[in-house]
Design a protein around this nucleic acid. Structure first.
Lengths: 341, 341
DNA sequence: CTGAAAGCGCTAACAC
DNA sequence: GTGTTAGCGCTTTCAG
């Protein structure tokens, strides 16, 4: 653990000169600089970030805040992890490190601001799959804590966000299925009154609107929360006398499970119904039939969020920015013309 | 951002008393302590970790080092993600935060020790899916950098590791399939001369040994590296005149893709062959047929690694510890008696 | 162009 | 029990 002073001694200069070289402040004669650089290399010197941070307040670290659910972190999840990849990639480019945290602590307290208070990070990126408590928003506003939200369009003027145009994609799904002759739709979602999830919310609302505007039929089946009569979505669907032929699922995981369960009951996709999901998870590509879906540019979203955050902490920008991305349709064999019965 | 001094002023004591209260050092009269605690609450004071770290050298942060592949982080991966969950959970319990990093930087340099040199973390947990360069091992030994490896049984006496008994599970798989009458095996792996992965390595070697000891037949098909004649594993298998009826796959992802590809070619599991994978990914549960597999206790492994690391940094233990976990068999419909042909 | 002095927020060692 | 002094490694004034 070489220190600045040791480098200075070896190079025969004062430690302040080392600081100048390390931080590229100019004002150093080339040959002095050369001596210092040689000493740095020889001692394998790295500036101590803790000490730097104590001076200028910058840790060059951000926290990625993700949901904790069922008493454990929700890392094991394609959506969150792809975002993390984007965050890490852009973070690296900009010289920032990423601290993984969850929104709740062990005891179920909402304390994700802790890492900022402790000065472990300069700012936070939220993966907003859950309602944001307004207490925290007020604190963020009051203290000017740099924050960017992904997926949840936080109302506060202090929080920038990036999101996708789920409404467009959901409307496209309805249109696409209607064009294949489908007249009876089902939407697999969550109980929005219980489980706030902005993605599911936007998708369900847009599906409702699009189906209604075409004058078609729609069953909405909640997956989580309190499922109808204690049954899970596939059971609810299978128990219906008149089954929708066009199923739109709030995400791919739900869709894949749905396909597997109905298949075991002898009700097959795409023979008996068509289905489309969201998020284009890799598992959907491996299904038989392959699952049609809408891809969010998660990698880009993660990268963009970091950019916004860094701009904000460095003062390059201090106004709220909002950014929306389109979703791409990913074709699959799970989409077919309505069965003639 | 209240400081210790501000709290002290408000409480009418000196800042050192605040420090004593915060760190529970005793030596403080209860009523003084009460005053200080009230001031802390009122000012919403958090100790500045940077400053603490500058004194005692402890950041209470660990780095989880995971592989970067194909120019991006490999976070989006069931295996890595479940480990991360375990690491985060135990970290929280012990008051440590987790910094996510990758083994290579943007330019392909092996610089995962950077975060330690910069004093951003107190130690490292490696997810060893890749050969560890011996340069780094030497540096770890020389500087006493606290490290724990997951899955790769690092030879150095300075690096503790946790791993699973893949050999046992692989032998069990062979035994199980042989008991179902299978005599011709295939193993789907990677090119071990090109792609070092300790899990795949242990599994392949054990399969080879077990099949040989029973005097049965084995085809080994590499998935990555340079696939035979430019074909991927399923194609290689399908192109064989005499196909193995018992397939053991190095992991579930490969197995799932294998099943999907052969199914499209009309070669069906379990009618035409049986298959078993490793890691018990959730996607395998949703396959038709469901995929038999062996589950590693990844959550526990992650937790255990953190425990070992923390013990090492706090000096509670300074000898190398190694720990192995058993794998659990997870039943699936992909296993059946050998087809009568 | 280079250096000396002060201080970031905190803790360890030593007084009182 | 409580306070004072020094110093962790670095950067930011301000002098020379």
């Amino acid at each position: 653990m070489a220190t600045q002073k040791e480098v200075a001694d070896l190079a025969g200069v004062s430690f302040i000169t080392v600081s100048r070289v390390v931080n590229n402040l100019g004002n150093v004669r080339p040959e002095t600089k050369g001596k210092v650089e040689r000493a740095i290399r020889e001692l394998n010197y790295y500036p101590n970030r803790q000490a730097q941070a104590l001076n200028n307040g910058l840790t060059h670290t951000l926290a990625l805040v993700t949901p904790r659910m069922f008493d454990r972190p929700l890392f094991n999840n394609f959506y969150v992890m792809t975002l993390l990849s984007g965050v890490e990639m852009r973070g690296r480019e900009l010289g920032w490190d990423v601290l993984m945290t969850t929104d709740f602590d062990q005891e179920g307290e909402f304390d994700f601001l802790r890492v900022w208070h402790q000065r472990k990070v300069d700012g936070l990126v939220f993966v907003g799959l859950r309602r944001f408590p307004s207490d925290q928003i007020r604190e963020i506003e009051a203290k000017g804590i740099p924050c960017v939200s992904i997926s949840d369009r936080i109302g506060s003027s202090a929080v920038s966000w990036v999101d996708t145009r789920n409404d467009e994609a959901a409307a496209d799904a309805v249109r696409r299925l209607a064009a294949l002759g489908h007249r009876h739709f089902a939407y697999l979602g969550v109980d929005l009154t219980q489980d706030y999830n902005p993605n599911f919310r936007d998708r369900e609302l847009a599906v409702r609107a699009a189906v209604a505007s075409l004058g078609l039929e729609l069953d909405v089946i909640a997956t989580s929360g309190v499922p109808t009569a204690g049954m899970e979505a596939p059971q609810v669907y299978l128990s219906m006398a008149r089954k929708a032929t066009a199923v739109i699922s709030g995400n791919d995981s739900v869709a894949i499970e749905f396909m597997a369960t109905t298949a075991r009951a002898g009700w097959l996709c795409p023979r008996d119904y068509s289905i489309v999901g969201f998020d284009a998870e890799p598992a959907g590509r491996l299904c038989v039939p392959t699952l049609a879906s809408y891809r969010q540019p998660l990698l880009e979203m993660g990268q963009s969020a970091v950019k916004l955050l860094v701009d904000q902490t460095t003062g390059a920008r201090n106004t709220k920015i909002t950014e929306t991305f389109p979703l791409d349709f990913v074709a699959g064999d799970s989409l077919a013309p309505v069965p003639q019965s």
